[in-house]
Design a binder for these strands. Structure first.
Lengths: 204, 204
DNA sequence: TTCAGTTACTAAACATTGTTTATATTAATT
DNA sequence: AATTAATATAAACAATGTTTAGTAACTGAA
């Protein structure tokens, strides 16, 4: 029964084609540039055809958001070479911030935009987001165990750390940092992260 | 020359009427509910009339964003009764978070949405945002002077503090906290803020 | 091979947006 | 009263996401 399989394969290919076209539009001009009609035009199908492969536009944005997470996760894996948990955690923050500032549109999609959030809520789970969070928790756990951080609920400590880095990233991305001259911004971003990190670490 | 003044007054009144109608729609259903056409309908004018009083829709959103800042600033003033700078700074954070979580739509408008940000950039200033930031800086300065915090660049320290609270608020508002069960969320929010505060304070 | 049924697709329409333009009405000035 | 300026509108424009109803193509059995 190869026919059914061929059809499944075709369906997958079509989904990929749509997604890849969305990525192209996305990378060209950001998510404002992703419209159902533009995708349709690029792949030479009618707009309605898109809806045979994705429930709605947010479904496409969610798929894109997944791709962003893969990129982030990959970059985060590089810190595993660092043995010392405290140095690793510091790098964790820096890599996160770097990703956000170098891929502001992806970051927006992953952590700020409402569209993907609706899908997250619909599914009532967020595997890919959780994976990153668990990764952070593990790192924090090791820092506590090694005596670098004071004892605390892991969820709480990880959320605090995440909030700090997310706060920095999202204030920059959504342009609420105009009180800092452009040329100082990087200094302030790095400084803010370091300020908290240096303040919370327990001297050994 | 009373005529010109009457006209100016009328213009102001009309601007107020539009803004108040926008607020009403906003409070009913959030900013998604604010449309030029709905405002026009409510005040019994044509949609095009709106454009004689506001340049565009973002101009209206920006005006609303201003109102949010007034509300926040008022609530922030209450902490001035606290003498001890460290207790005051802690309260500062709590009041900020409280405002965000009790007025998520206003908070969104003020610190997350793109619409108002465009106006901020156009004007190349952000008086009302700066006022809040300066208020925070002053508080932090006093904490450093009183020996509660380690010496640091004021902008950096204030931005760090702001990022933390904003991070918490915006992750909740944009629904990226589904890894925490609803009933734990408040505990985690308060915990995260306390965790950092308790970690950065210098024991006297 | 032919015919019914499923699947893949599309054209067109629908329901919304924000915004502009050309036109009419109203008020003020000369 | 005639001209100029201000105020308001109807209608259109240009987008958007999404749905509907109908068409073409392919599939599996008679």
């Amino acid at each position: 029964m190869g026919i059914l399989e061929r059809k499944k394969r075709k369906k997958k290919e079509m989904r990929s084609l749509i997604l890849e076209t969305a990525i192209k539009l996305f990378l060209e001009e950001g998510f404002e540039n992703i419209t159902v009609r533009r995708i349709a035009e690029k792949i030479e199908y009618s707009p309605a055809a898109i809806y045979l492969y994705y429930k709605d536009k947010n479904d496409i944005l969610y798929a894109l958001h997944d791709i962003g997470f893969e990129k982030l996760y990959k970059q985060q894996q590089t810190i595993l070479t660092i043995k010392d948990p405290w140095r690793r955690l510091r790098k964790h923050g820096k890599v996160y911030a770097k990703f956000a500032l170098e891929n502001p549109k992806y970051y927006d999609l992953m952590f700020i935009m409402n569209g993907p959030a609706k899908k997250i809520k619909e599914k009532e789970e967020w595997e890919i987001g959780l994976r990153s969070f668990e990764f952070l928790k593990k790192n924090i756990k090791e820092c506590i165990e090694a005596g670098y951080l004071k004892k605390a609920n892991l969820d709480v400590a990880a959320f605090a750390f995440w909030s700090l880095t997310h706060g920095i990233a999202s204030l920059v991305i959504r342009e609420r940092c105009i009180m800092f001259p452009e040329e100082h911004l990087n200094f302030i971003i790095e400084g803010a992260l370091d300020f908290v990190l240096k303040s919370i670490v327990k001297k050994k």
